[in-house]
Design a protein around this nucleic acid. Structure first.
Lengths: 259, 259
DNA sequence: TCTTATTTGTTCGTATGTATT
DNA sequence: GAATACATACGAACAAATAAG
């Protein structure tokens, strides 16, 4: 046995102890945990039990496990995603950054970075096509981005716009100018007036798993963001994927009526 | 080995097969999965491997595991939580129910049920006291509820109101009347005009674990809901806890300005 | 109530595979 | 290639919860 008691399973007790160690500074952010054989000897349990405990911490986002190298304590604090503020012009343009993401990250003293991994005319997924009112065969602009906070991957975003609108607004290039896509849309009279978001949790795709360094037991937030025009049409369909432990989502709205 | 191939681990392949079986009707909602020894023989793997696969499905909310009895396929579909609609008077009063929760559940053809487990004057948690502007020692009304959809536990809610306001509004009793607490608050001129919600994922408390039937690896949504008055004061601090797989959260808001 | 069979939960020792240094 | 570190898998065993008698 080795000192660990019965009512709570050993791997959960080990996880509790390691969690305490992380929160109390014994294992500071960025530092490695002892190796699993080490911990097994230290706690007097088998390595399988240690591994299971570490999987729990991994699921909580407390550690990042690097196969062949070791396990390190994560260092990026939770990022507050202000859904309302994100889509106000002031927030998009402030600080010279290209959007509210930059602001959210810099506020934490971290360095934001955005990589565009795809910028193309494509056949949109059926869900996106339906929302955007695209006929069969009508193309859409896809803008797929990877976003980082101090080199930690924190967000995957895939945005779809009707190609004709994207071309007219001049947002088919990498740099969409000050204020980004929304400001260009506003300039041609197609600025969205209302937004909706659907948030759910799901298991990551294998692409997301490797990008975020997730285990298969961890889940991600999936946010379906839709930008609406005054006449009820949608101009943008966007799919955001976020590691759950990395974000706090903030929403605000007024009480009655249709706002 | 037994027919399962290398690049993807066996327990994940087993999970994939079981997931397919559930989605394709081989194991319909409410039906039991074969026992773990059975599945071990069937797939030609050890029972530990089967157990691990089932834990994955459990984490996704596809099955409910009952120790000593077996594993059954869950039957409650994802519930759409419309944060905006929830706090409109029409939604609160419609259908004769006592709130938007009833509506959301009935829409799915399920039977809503609410149990009040605590209704008291208490010292609020520090976070709640700070938001509500309560001095040290000032009491708050706590209204703690368990909510069910066709007897499946789907939501835990703990709401805090300043006691003096709660008494004045007449909401210190179990039945708060048509439209609920918000309608009573409105009647004394303290109807909230704005709401905010902070959504994050965290591991469940042991209370939540047993109430929702979660494993330790599953997480829950925690929603901090605050109801604001026109003068910037808060009248309500509420903590909602939801099993992640059970809900889709919907938000809507207008584009510019302070709305 | 007690007993027994069934079912899931946990743990170990051992072994092998894969990734990194 | 060798050493180190994490990932997966098996067989075996026991614990804990449940159900049937």
């Amino acid at each position: 046995m080795g000192g660990l008691e019965a009512p709570r399973s050993q791997y959960r007790q080990v996880a509790d102890l390691l969690r305490d160690g992380i929160e109390h500074g014994e294992y500071p952010p960025g530092s490695p945990l002892p190796s699993e054989p080490d911990l097994a000897t230290r706690f007097g349990v088998s390595r399988v039990t240690i591994n299971r405990a570490v999987q729990l911490l991994r699921g909580e986002g407390l550690v990042r496990v690097l196969r062949g190298r070791g396990t390190v304590v994560r260092s990026i604090p939770a990022i507050r995603r202000n859904s309302n503020r994100r889509y106000q012009r002031a927030a998009r343009e402030e600080g010279g950054g290209r959007g509210a993401f930059d602001f959210e990250i810099r506020r934490l003293g971290l360095t934001p970075r955005t990589e565009i991994v795809q910028l193309d005319a494509v056949q949109p997924p059926t869900a996106a096509a339906a929302v955007l009112g695209l006929e069969d065969g009508e193309p859409a602009l896809i803008r797929k981005r990877q976003l980082f906070a101090s080199d930690e991957p924190v967000l995957l975003a895939a945005s779809y716009l009707p190609w004709t609108i994207a071309e007219q607004a001049g947002v088919t290039t990498i740099d969409t100018g000050p204020g980004g896509t929304y400001s260009r849309l506003a300039e041609i009279g197609l600025g969205p007036v209302r937004f909706s978001e659907d948030v759910r949790a799901r298991i990551p795709t294998s692409e997301e798993e490797s990008f975020f360094g997730l285990s298969e037991a961890q889940q991600v937030f999936e946010i379906v963001h839709i930008s609406w025009l005054a006449d009820g049409r949608a101009v943008e369909y966007r799919l955001d994927t976020l590691p759950m432990f990395q974000w706090i989502m903030h929403f605000e709205w007024n009480a009655e009526g249709e706002q």
